[in-house]
Computed example of a mutant assay.
Amino acid sequence: MAAPPSRGVARARRAPAIAVTIDDFDLSDTPLMSGEERDAAIRAALNRHKIKAGGFVAGKYVNDSLSKRVLSAWSSADHIIGNHSFSHSYFSGNNPDALMADIMMCEPLLSEYPSFRRLFRFPYLAEGKSREGRDRMRMLLKQREYANAHVTIDTSDWYIDNRLKARLKADPSVPIAPYKRFYLDHIWERANFYDGVAQSLFGHSIDHTILLHHRLATGLFLDDMLSMFRARGWQLIDAKTAFASSVFAMEPDVVPAGQSLIWSLAKADGRFDKLLRYPGEDGDYEAPKMDAANL
Score class of each variant (00 low, 15 high):
37 E>V: 13
207 D>Q: 04
214 H>Y: 06
79 H>T: 00
239 A>C: 03
171 D>N: 15
128 G>E: 11
33 M>G: 02
67 S>Q: 13
23 D>N: 01
32 L>R: 00
97 D>G: 12
204 H>C: 00
261 L>W: 10
127 E>Y: 08
217 A>G: 09
2 A>L: 15
9 V>W: 15
249 A>R: 15
35 G>K: 01
103 I>W: 10
4 P>K: 00
160 I>H: 14
34 S>R: 04
243 F>H: 08
202 F>M: 15
266 A>Y: 11
253 D>M: 14
21 T>F: 07
251 E>K: 13
126 A>G: 07
11 R>S: 09
68 K>P: 06
191 A>R: 10
114 P>E: 10
117 R>Y: 02
22 I>G: 01
137 M>W: 13
30 T>F: 04
113 Y>W: 00
174 V>D: 04
209 T>V: 14
282 D>H: 06
13 R>L: 04
233 G>R: 11
270 G>H: 01
237 I>V: 12
101 A>Q: 08
197 V>P: 09
89 S>W: 06
175 P>L: 06
109 L>H: 13
1 M>N: 15
13 R>H: 07
93 G>I: 14
179 Y>P: 03
138 R>C: 00
266 A>E: 04
147 A>N: 09
155 T>W: 06
275 L>R: 05
13 R>D: 14
47 N>H: 03
111 S>F: 10
6 S>W: 08
179 Y>H: 05
248 F>H: 14
79 H>I: 08
144 R>W: 02
162 N>P: 06
153 I>N: 03
144 R>G: 01
23 D>F: 01
277 R>T: 06
257 A>R: 11
136 R>G: 03
106 C>E: 13
191 A>D: 07
226 L>S: 08
79 H>F: 02
79 H>W: 09
118 R>D: 02
13 R>W: 04
234 W>C: 07
49 H>R: 05
287 A>S: 08
3 A>D: 11
8 G>F: 09
181 R>G: 12
219 G>F: 15
15 A>H: 08
30 T>R: 07
266 A>V: 03
231 A>S: 12
3 A>I: 06
145 E>T: 07
88 H>M: 08
142 K>L: 10
5 P>G: 13
11 R>A: 06
10 A>D: 09
51 I>K: 09
236 L>Y: 13
38 R>A: 09
169 K>M: 03
50 K>C: 09
47 N>D: 12
189 E>K: 11
25 F>T: 00
194 Y>G: 14
40 A>P: 00
92 S>Y: 11
244 A>P: 09
188 W>E: 12
94 N>G: 05
115 S>P: 05
96 P>S: 10
238 D>G: 11
186 H>M: 07
71 L>K: 10
233 G>V: 11
189 E>N: 10
293 A>T: 05
42 I>S: 11
191 A>W: 08
129 K>I: 01
255 V>S: 05
249 A>S: 14
81 I>T: 13
67 S>P: 03
154 D>N: 02
